[in-house]
């Protein structure tokens, strides 16, 4: 396993795409952190988000400071998780796209081991995305909050725990990406489906399924919702859309998605003939 992990690490650092994506995530999260901190501290801002979905803005009390900082500081796992997912998926789809899967499997014919190494190797990489994405969010978010005269609460142990979980869940998202890439090794298809699902399909599902009582319980188990549950705060939840699982259940659910997708990939694309 150690040689396989070293090989995976080298595969990653010898290409450029990962740090381009990391840079994109940092900029995107810094932007979102600042903007959301500003919007949510507007007069009646806590309700502004829910105005379109639930009750009127006037009926919503402003967010308490703890919820405010938590919503801002966890924007990375709420909205930016697509970056570690894509990086994880690319670790598999790149091998099929450039047919490097051939020399990879010639050097190590045990395909489960190759996939396992990719899953494990994605965790520290995802954690790096987690650290950078979370720090970028907090940097601008806290700055704007401070300027607006709100408490930044960065000495609060609960807030720090939330930040740690934000890093943790983004690391797991990279692993989910590896599983997804194995299940859908066509690179273009994988990226299109990932973007469509994370940015469009799941938000819609959460909105519509969450609106009806019989399907409301399903929403919490959707991958994005499970991911948000890990940080215990949710951009969606604070917007009044659905409840979240306990954090550890969310984590297990997300790990489960990753392993399920990886098992699916092992039984399909990685079982098939490589030709």
């Amino acid at each position: 396993m150690i040689p396989a992990l070293r090989a995976e690490y080298r595969k990653l650092v010898t290409t450029r795409l990962w740090w381009v994506l990391l840079l994109c995530m940092a900029l995107y999260m810094a932007f979102l952190g600042g903007v959301m901190a500003f919007v949510l501290t507007q007069e009646g801002g806590g309700g502004a988000m829910t105005g379109g979905f639930g009750g009127g803005a006037d009926e919503m009390p402003p967010l308490p400071p703890e919820d405010l900082v938590r919503t801002v500081y966890t924007l990375a796992p709420a909205l930016g998780y697509v970056f570690p997912v894509i990086v994880g998926a690319l670790a598999v789809t790149n091998e099929f796209r450039h047919m490097t899967i051939t020399p990879t499997l010639l050097a190590e014919p045990r395909r489960s081991l190759v996939l396992g190494a990719k899953l494990v190797a994605s965790l520290p990489l995802g954690a790096l995305f987690g650290v950078v994405g979370t720090l970028a969010t907090v940097a601008t978010g806290a700055l704007v909050l401070a300027v607006r005269g709100e408490p930044v609460l960065l000495d609060d142990p609960d807030v720090l725990l939330t930040l740690a979980r934000s890093v943790l869940v983004l690391a797991v998202w990279a692993m989910v990406g590896v599983g997804f890439g194995a299940a859908m090794p066509n690179q273009v298809a994988a990226i299109v489906v990932l973007l469509a699902f994370t940015q469009f399909v799941e938000p819609l599902l959460r909105l519509f399924l969450g609106a009806f009582e019989p399907t409301e319980g399903i929403v919490r188990w959707l991958p994005g919702a499970a991911g948000e549950a890990v940080t215990g705060a949710s951009f969606y939840a604070s917007s009044g859309i659905g409840n979240l699982l306990p954090w550890w259940q969310g984590l297990l659910a997300l790990v489960g998605y990753g392993l399920l997708l990886a098992a699916l990939g092992r039984a399909t694309s990685l079982r098939r003939d490589i030709s």
Binding site: A7, R10, A107
Partner: peptide
């Protein structure tokens, strides 16, 4: 995107 040496370095551990 990999250099010739990196292509080999990726395979060397396994």
């Amino acid at each position: 995107g990999r250099s010739a040496r990196d292509h080999l370095r990726v395979l060397a551990p396994q």
